[in-house]
Simulated scan of single mutants.
Amino acid sequence: MNTTETTDPRTRVVQTADELFYARGVSTVTMDQLRDASGVSLKRLYSMFPSKEDVVVGVLERRRSIWTEGVESLIDAAPDARSKVLAVYDFLAAWFCDADFRGCVFVNTFAELGATSPRVAAVVREQKAAFQQRMAQLVTQLGGSELLAAQLAILAEGAQTTAAISGAPDAAAVARAAAETLISAEL
C-alpha cells in the first residue's frame, strides 16, 4: 500500500513507520525520516505521537490487527476443528512467501527494544500470550491438551524465526507436518 495515499495523518504515520521499521529496524529510523516518508510535519507528528515509543506501540497495534484478521479469516474458513488448528500454519505459509517477509515484527521489535522499553515489551508479551491462548482454544475444540496447544504454538513461533533467518518459506510446511504428527499422536 502506498502510505502517501492515506488521508488520515495518524494512519499514514503508523503505516509508514511500519514499513520503515520492518524494512530497516526501529533503531535506524529517525523521526525526521518518518516525517519525510509520511509527509506529516514534525510538529504534527509529535502532537500525535509524543515519543518514538508511541509510534512503535502504534505499529505493534496495527500488526496485531493484521495478524488477527489474517489468521482468523483462515480459521473461520476451515471446515473442522483439526483444519482450524492447521490453518495457522497455512497463514504462515502464505506470509512467508511475501517478498518483504523479515520475520515476526513482535520478535524483531522485542529484540531491539524489549530490554529498554517495558511498554514495548508488554505489548509484545500481550500479543504472544494472545496467540498462545487462541491456539489453546483451537486445540481444546479439537479435544487436545494444554501441552499440545503449547507445543503447536512453539512450532508456529519457531517457523517464523526459521523462515526469517533462512529465507526459506518451507518452514511453515515443516511446522505444519510436525503439528499434524503431534495432533495424531495425541488424538
Rank of each mutant, 00 (worst) to 15 (best):
T3R: 08
T3K: 04
P9M: 11
P9N: 11
R10D: 03
T11P: 07
R12N: 06
V13K: 11
Q15G: 10
A17E: 01
E19V: 14
F21R: 03
Y22I: 02
R24K: 10
R24G: 00
G25M: 03
G25Y: 03
V26S: 03
S27V: 03
T28R: 11
V29F: 04
T30R: 04
M31C: 05
M31R: 02
Q33I: 03
D36Q: 08
A37S: 14
S38L: 03
V40Q: 05
V40R: 08
S41M: 06
L45R: 01
L45I: 01
L45K: 01
Y46N: 10
M48D: 01
K52H: 02
E61T: 00
E61M: 00
R62W: 06
R63E: 12
S65K: 07
S65I: 05
T68L: 08
G70E: 06
G70D: 13
I75F: 03
D76R: 12
A77R: 13
A77D: 14
A78T: 06
S83A: 14
A87C: 09
F91S: 08
A94E: 07
W95G: 01
C97Y: 02
C97H: 07
D98V: 00
D98G: 00
A99V: 01
D100Q: 03
D100A: 06
V107Y: 09
V107I: 11
N108H: 04
F110V: 02
G114T: 10
V120R: 01
A122C: 04
R125C: 00
K128N: 13
A129M: 13
A129N: 15
A130K: 04
Q133K: 06
R134G: 09
A136Q: 14
A136N: 11
A136G: 14
Q137A: 05
L138T: 13
V139C: 13
V139Y: 11
Q141H: 06
L147D: 14
L148W: 11
A150M: 12
A150T: 15
L152C: 11
L155S: 08
Q160S: 15
Q160I: 10
T161P: 12
A163H: 09
A163P: 13
I165P: 12
A168W: 13
P169A: 15
A171P: 09
A172I: 12
R176V: 04
R176N: 09
T181N: 07
T181V: 10
S184Q: 04
E186G: 04
L187P: 08
